[in-house]
Amino acid sequence: MANKIAAIGKRDAILPYKAIGVEIYITEEKNEFKTIIEKLVKEEYAIVLVTEEIAEKYADIIKEYNEYMIPSIIPVPGTEGSTGYGARRLREAVKKAVGADIYAE
């Protein structure tokens, strides 16, 4: 099956993605974010890129789709550069599974 990529975030941070063929959704508002994510899940998007600030703010919404095979929702750095949330999120998942913090270098 052929599925699509989408990006969600602030206008400045995700506009360039549009040129390379990623669908973009500009939002910073919680309810809007939720409806967009629901729509993307329903339409079987494969990858959803979310800027880090927003991903961190609405982590509870994203968490609901953790056990779905698709979409893979991943945080990407926004206009302010990397906040380290992406790495932190992975680290949490690993810590939960292994019971020890082995993600750190």
């Binding site: 099956m1 599925n3 506009l15 549009k18 063929g21 494969a46 698709i70």
Partner: peptide, 17 residues
């Protein structure tokens, strides 16, 4: 100009899963 650039993207990325 900025709006114009991104108005009609000619490139498409599909992901086969």
């Amino acid at each position: 100009t900025e709006d114009e650039i991104f108005l009609i993207p000619t490139k498409k990325i599909n992901i086969s899963v």
